[in-house]
Simulated assay, not measured.
Amino acid sequence: MRRPLVRRLTALAAAAIFLPAAAACGSGDSTGESGAKGGTSPLVIYSGRQQALVKPLLAKLEKAVGAKVQVRYGDSAELSAQLLDEGDRTKAALFFSQDAGALGALSKEKRLAKLPQATLDKVAPAYRSANGDWTGVSGRARVIAYHPDKTPEVPGSVRDLVEPEWKGKVGYAPTNASFQAFVTGMRILDGDDATRTWLKGLKANGAKAYAHNIAVLDAVESGEVSVGLVNHYYWYERVAEKGADKVKAKLHFPRGGDPGALVNVAGVGVLKGSGESEQARKAVEFLLSKEAQTYFAEDTKEYPLAAGVTSSVKDLPSLDSLDSPKIDLARLDSLRDTLAMLQDVGMV
């Protein structure tokens, strides 16, 4: 029998907290409380971004804020739930989330402090909180990866993937946070009934589930499936590693505000009541600096969001050119309902 969803989320959140995640940046990686510099309290960051991805950047952040940084890594939704549970007792000063929904959940419960307007103004309103309490720092677009030899006509919309011609030809990662955020976006755009019908149709059409985006891209690359639902940067990272002539898969950026074209953000918020809020605000400023934005653009192949920084990745469409759905990213906070829906249709 499946466990109730709330119990599952609580258990996952607890597991994230007690994993040996940390790895504070800088010399002497540790999560202990004794690592402060010169008696200064450490800046505690809860990070939903993977250690392998952001540790080099957070090492530079440590120097920028002038204090020891301690990082607790985990899933963004789980860490958000943990922060809500901890409330004023939390030692975290900054939440670095993989997606906007987890930040929106904290904002809804008024757990985030207002950011300076000058900081917010560095990022377009579409990619930050309307309440002024979190901001995106990097963006990623949902795309359709396809095998050109097996896809004579690329699907114009993800909604088409439940049609008979795509039976057994679609790959997706239902347990992946980015897929779940996309489903949440579809719920906002199309409504719950239509989204549930689409998910059931996708499953009934023999779509193949994989553990993560990389596995989906691998399946497209090998021809195991014809198309796959992924984030854009996985393909660009592979091209950078192997060369464009060695990568068989291609990308399609859906148009017309399609839910399959969602642009989500990784973002940050300062925890309300934190004794280290000034250091946390400095950390936000650093993540929007040219140095950090260039890191996102060049190292992780994401979209930089701060004004004045553009991506130099070859053949990557500009962020302004994408025809993504116009939704308030804070509304992606209804992840719990999305997980319940995915569980109901048997995808997770």
Rank of each mutant, 00 (worst) to 15 (best):
F18E: 10
L19K: 11
A24K: 13
S27R: 13
S27P: 09
G28R: 11
D29Y: 02
A36E: 04
K37H: 14
G39Q: 06
T40R: 15
Q50S: 08
L57C: 09
A59D: 04
K60R: 15
G66M: 04
Q70P: 01
V71L: 09
R72P: 06
R72S: 13
A77H: 11
D85Y: 13
G87H: 03
T90H: 10
K91V: 07
F96K: 07
S97A: 11
D99C: 05
L103I: 09
A105P: 05
K108V: 09
E109H: 11
L112K: 04
L112A: 08
T119D: 02
K122E: 14
V123N: 06
V123W: 04
A124Y: 04
R128T: 02
S138M: 14
R142T: 13
P152F: 07
E163C: 03
E165H: 10
E165A: 13
K167C: 13
G171Q: 03
A173S: 04
S178G: 05
D193L: 01
D193G: 00
K203Y: 08
I214V: 13
A215P: 02
V216D: 14
L217S: 07
L217P: 03
A219G: 12
Y234A: 02
Y236L: 07
E241P: 06
E241R: 11
K242P: 04
A244Q: 12
H252Q: 14
F253N: 13
P254N: 09
G257E: 10
A266G: 11
G269S: 03
V270F: 10
S274R: 07
K290N: 14
E298M: 08
E298W: 08
A306D: 01
G308E: 11
V309C: 01
V313M: 14
K314Q: 09
S321W: 02
S334E: 15
R336H: 10
L339I: 05
L339S: 03
A340R: 02
M341G: 00
L342Y: 00
V345G: 13
G346C: 01
V348R: 13
